[in-house]
Design a protein around this nucleic acid. Structure first.
Lengths: 261, 261
DNA sequence: CGCGCCGTTGACGGCCTTCAATACCCGTGG
DNA sequence: CCACGGGTATTGAAGGCCGTCAACGGCGCG
């Protein structure tokens, strides 16, 4: 049933940058984890040689996604996990009244679709916030590999557990913090993730709109805007629309930590 | 590894194949999934004969827990998953200011500790809300089994995914609903879970305090109390402290669904 | 240019929090 | 037996944070 695992595809020399710019040939462009510049962040994180090579056997289909496009919709059959190669995505739940609830933002190296295993249908939708590229990982093949490789099994479990922990943190935020703390938490989180990806931790471009940030943080877009302005007046940061420059990371951290106690 | 003995006194869900009923090594405090009355709800859910028998090999240690006692604390090393046999538990995060954030309530057949895989340390604490009993499942052994049994691997992944989906729902609640909708959602959820366990869906005893409900729903205990009173005045239910009788489930559902649109 | 989308800002009001008092239950001890 | 105290739940009053509604400005695009 499962084909050969070891692959000897001639992809060793594909440099990171040009790999991203490969023309969108309709035929499947495959990607190898072992040569991916994101392997420290992504699924292979923590895996060693042999296990990563096993992942190579999956020959992920790579796919370009344009801004606004959906990777999958709530309710669709779950077949693939998606690993972000470039770009930013949002995960959303559709509310009964037509609004949407943002459950997370995903950046390079992060996984999308883990909520689909539960029922075999995607429990949320994933929308691209800018043009980007993803690896589509066939879940059935991945689990087959996991039965062979305990380390991969562990890595997958850890990925899911990490998602649970992340949502715990969000529940804490939504359940017990005020607007300033929420936005501070959000900015600190983005800052960290940008840093982990080699970008500046203090100056970045937000890819999502105010209404998305608001939905994610459980506040209205006007409140998001006002809180940005307030932070700017306090000298914590400089905002111009989506461009943010953090001027005082410590103070932001203190706001997040809450009133001293 | 697997011994077979005839068991009498089967509980509610009698297994089809009485032949493979398991050994009651009477002195031992171990528990077998194959004879457990919770197997339709718990970890073995969806698994068939052979896989459940494999779980039997783990010989879960059973443990009694008293009200107020902790199964584990945030930060402790992660070794076991815990399956609730009886009683009710709350999962909590400790906030910096000394308060706590409740992230979930667990009833019979539900798993505790899934957030520990991510870092190897428990990311939350689990506290018994009443005297109860749990199965302590050694995670290392469980993963070993999962490499042998693809079905078990799938079952575990599904358990985690279900937790992610559950938290999604909670984020929606915390991010976009008012006090009445939150409490309605909470009551409907409890009602369903009681029903699934063979109890009345319309009349039950809440095991948690108002402050816990409030923490879970992102509101203050006074607001919880006031909303209960309001529901009572609307004729939706009858409340006396922790005892709740739902009088109009449909109306409660309508409140949860929100204003018509 | 004009239109639509996005972000900002102001005014107002409502929902929920905060603070406080009271009632109730229950175990302990005089 | 009743008094007493601690923990829990309810209820009231006042206030604040944030939501709602509205207007405006900037920007990109047909």
């Amino acid at each position: 049933m499962q084909t050969v695992v070891a692959a000897t595809a001639p992809v060793r020399f594909v440099p990171r940058e040009t790999a991203l710019q490969a023309p969108a040939s309709p035929a499947a462009i495959t990607t190898l984890c072992s040569t991916c510049h994101l392997k420290e962040l992504c699924l292979p994180c923590g895996l060693t040689g042999i296990d990563v090579e096993r992942l190579d056997g999956l020959k992920f289909a790579r796919r370009r996604v344009k801004e606004g496009e959906a990777l999958y919709h709530e309710g669709e059959n779950f077949q693939f996990l998606y690993a972000v190669r470039s770009g930013t995505f949002k995960s959303i739940l559709n509310l009964k009244d037509g609004r949407e609830q943002v459950t997370g933002f995903q950046m390079a190296g992060e996984l999308l679709g883990l909520d689909g295993l539960a029922s075999g249908k995607h429990a949320s939708s994933a929308i691209a916030l800018e043009d980007g590229e993803i690896c589509a990982i066939p879940y059935a093949h991945l689990t087959e590999l996991a039965t062979v490789s305990p380390h991969l099994h562990l890595a997958m479990s850890r990925m899911m557990s990490r998602e649970i922990v992340r949502e715990h943190g969000l529940m804490m935020l939504l359940g017990s913090m005020n607007a300033e703390q929420r936005l501070a938490a959000f900015l600190l989180n983005i800052s960290q993730r940008m840093k982990a990806r080699g970008y500046s931790a203090s100056e970045f471009h937000l890819r999502m709109m105010r209404v998305d940030i608001g939905s994610y943080l459980g506040m209205k877009l006007e409140t998001v805007s006002r809180t940005f302005t307030s932070f700017q007046h306090q000298g914590l940061l400089k905002v111009d629309k989506k461009h943010v420059k953090i001027l005082d990371l410590d103070a932001l951290q203190q706001i997040f930590d809450g009133p001293v106690q």
